[in-house]
Amino acid sequence: MKTYFSPSHEYLTIDEEGNGYVGISDYAQKALGNVVYVDMPEVGDEFEKDEDFGAIESVKAASDLIIPVSCEVLEINEALADNPRLVNEDAMANWIIKIKLTDPEEVESLMDLDAYNEYLATNPH
């Protein structure tokens, strides 16, 4: 299991079989506040890296979800439909979509945890 981060605060965790899990970082959930809705794609949808794959809403803010790597959607996290606050409870555990990477080399362009923390520390948001 290895986790990567994008500059738009999505994470991508790759499991042993090479499948990915995409969610938003803990920093992002804190910045949003109480999450009230997660707009998710459908299983089978295909995305190119950096396309919008959905949106996440709190009461007074909304943020597009940007896919960190090109992929096909294998599964969506149905639990978030009923209880979107799970994202606030544990953003890293509550992934939004499970994906099959169509161009695994794209992960090279993402940050690891240390680089992401460095990015958060040096970039005003």
Binding site: Y37, V59, K60, A61, A62
Partner: peptide, 8 residues
């Protein structure tokens, strides 16, 4: 309101 112009 997250649908609306003043936020989105």
């Amino acid at each position: 309101q997250a649908r609306e112009q003043h936020i989105r």
